[in-house]
Design a protein around this nucleic acid. Structure first.
Length: 492
RNA sequence: GACCCCAUCGUCUAGCGGUUAGGACACCGCCCUUUCACGGCGGCGGCACGGGUUCGAUUCCCGUUGGGGUCGCCA
């Protein structure tokens, strides 16, 4: 069996699209699963749109997702590697032109002297008359004399589409067929000598000995041209697999302008890369093991198979992504979670340096079961760093609205003051004693305390949080709350 | 418009001629519980439509409808 060689060929346009990430992931998984080679090739031939720094963004996206490559260009601070380079399409111009010339020599392609203006006019006319916009075939059969007579007029090179029909045996879409007369003689080299995508991609895939071309199914109809080119150039035809695209929540093509189109948006929003990897692969692939949805990157490599790829496009579902992220957050160790969450707290303006690593780990641990995204750490822990300046109004009405509220707070304070061993179990015991002494429900003491300590009605477990907050600070906040309640009562 | 692809709960999907059409997210109850969350239990909810083929179609074929894609000297 010949070793698997797969690739992704992103165009550096400014960001790493979620759909590209999915394609990259499927290719990467297949390479890793089979012990094959995963190649990264930059399609930067559109000199007008490509910018050098854009490539780094793709690199950052791949790195974030944990997708590494075996062959690829020098970029993102890494050296070029692989024997079949260069891996930057812009550096392969000579090769593309050489191969195009070969086609011309074999009469499989020809020079076309039509100008862009002529062709545009022709296309507009066709559209106005509601005819399919087709190339007229004007230069298809020029004689050597006619070509010579053109002198040094600029020309493009067109591929001469043969008669017959073209069939793609697609791994996911099945057998797909089209009549060649539906395909125009298409341009493969521009008048300035630049190769067009269709030529470049086929030459590169052919020469880089790509065995499986797996990409978005927006390329399915392009693939007809590509197999024509593969055959004309005499390359071995790779296996094609056109993967369904990622649609936005309304079912449309995921627009670049939409938040989330850029994979790095999800990092920004507090999602784990393993969540995105897990989610993306589930959008178009199902494991053999029925019902299983939760996978680490390593488990995916193990479970992945081409056979279970689906063929219909999937809409992006934020709710499911959030759920999945919660699952992955819970798989982290408390230390890992702490390290991921600290930068977010810093960004929110909190100084965590006053706390020990051990303390911060415990803080992360008491939130681990609760937060759906990393960013949610902020509302769950902000009160540790800044005492509440206001209390949640609805909670105030509910917990402190009763005439005996001040009295309850006072008894809580009284229960806390003598505690010498300030820990979860002791605090819990103190509350239980209050319950026993008064005959009230635990919540009657817990909720007012939470409000006093955090200013909110939701958050980590109260005993855990109180322990971490410390005795002095907890009592201060309780006293401040008692004063607040008294003032409120006097006013009313 | 032409060509190509797709079509099971709201969403992601399992299913590969005979199933009470299964799971997950979401949603709604209940339980657990100091809140929230987690977890557990239960519920709601689907084979787009019309023809065939067949003893029997979610499943195979054709059409319709709907969605997507491609039709560049962009990639």
């Amino acid at each position: 069996m010949t070793p698997i060689r797969v690739r992704i060929a992103p165009s550096p346009t400014g960001f790493f699209h979620i759909g590209n990430a999915k394609t990259a992931l499927i290719n990467w998984l297949y390479a890793r699963k089979t012990g094959g080679t995963f190649i990264l090739r930059l399609e930067d031939t559109d000199t007008e749109r490509s910018e050098a720094q854009y490539a780094d963004i793709i690199c950052e996206g791949l790195r974030w997702l944990g997708i590494d490559w075996d062959e690829g260009p020098a970029f993102g601070g890494e050296a070029e590697r692989g024997a079949l380079g260069p891996y930057r399409q812009s550096e392969r111009r000579e090769i593309h032109c050489r191969e195009a010339q070969r086609l011309v020599d074999d009469a499989k392609a020809y020079r076309c002297f039509c100008t862009k203006e002529e062709l545009d006019a022709e296309r507009e006319r066709a559209q106005a008359e509601k005819r399919p916009p087709r190339y007229s075939g004007k230069c298809r059969n020029l004689t050597a004399e006619q070509i010579a007579a053109m002198g040094d007029r600029p020309y493009s090179v067109r591929f001469r589409v043969p008669e017959g029909a073209t069939v793609i045996e697609d791994l996911v879409q099945g057998s797909v067929r089209v009549e060649n007369k539906e395909i125009d003689d298409f341009i493969i080299v521009k008048p300035n000598g630049d190769p067009v995508f269709h030529l470049a991609v086929v030459v590169d895939d052919g020469l880089m000995e790509i065995t499986h071309v797996m990409r978005g199914d927006d390329h399915l109809t392009n693939a007809f041209r590509h197999v024509l080119l593969f055959n004309a150039l005499g390359y071995k035809l790779p296996t094609f697999a056109h993967l369904p695209m990622v649609l936005d929540e309304t079912g449309k093509k995921y627009s670049k302008r939409l938040h989330g189109a850029n994979v790095l948006d999800w990092r920004e929003d507090g999602y784990l890369p393993e969540t995105i990897v897990n989610y993306l692969v589930l959008l178009g692939w199902t494991p053999e093991e029925e019902g299983r949805e939760l996978f680490t990157r390593t488990e995916l490599v193990e479970a992945f198979s081409l056979e279970r790829l689906g063929k219909s496009a999937g809409k992006f579902d934020l709710k499911k992504l959030q759920w999945l992220n919660g699952q992955h957050i819970r798989m982290l160790s408390p230390e890992e979670l702490r390290d991921k969450v600290l930068p977010i707290l810093h960004k929110a303006g909190f100084d965590t340096s006053v706390k020990s690593q051990e303390w911060l780990t415990r803080m992360a641990a008491i939130c681990q079961e609760k937060i759906p995204t990393l960013n949610e750490i902020v509302p769950y822990t902000d009160f540790f760093f800044v005492a509440p300046t206001a209390y949640d109004e609805k909670a105030v009405a509910k917990q402190w609205g009763k005439p005996y509220a001040a009295e309850h707070l006072a008894s809580i304070i009284a229960a806390f003051e003598p505690i010498s061993s300030w820990d979860h179990d002791t605090l819990k015991a103190a509350f239980e004693k209050l319950v026993a002494d008064t005959g009230l429900a635990l919540g009657q003491f817990v909720h007012p305390t939470r409000l006093a300590l955090t200013g909110k009605s939701v958050g980590p477990g109260l005993f855990e949080l109180t322990e971490l907050l410390g005795k002095d600070e907890s009592l201060n906040r309780l006293r401040a709350a008692a004063a607040f309640v008294r003032a409120r009562g006097d006013a009313a």
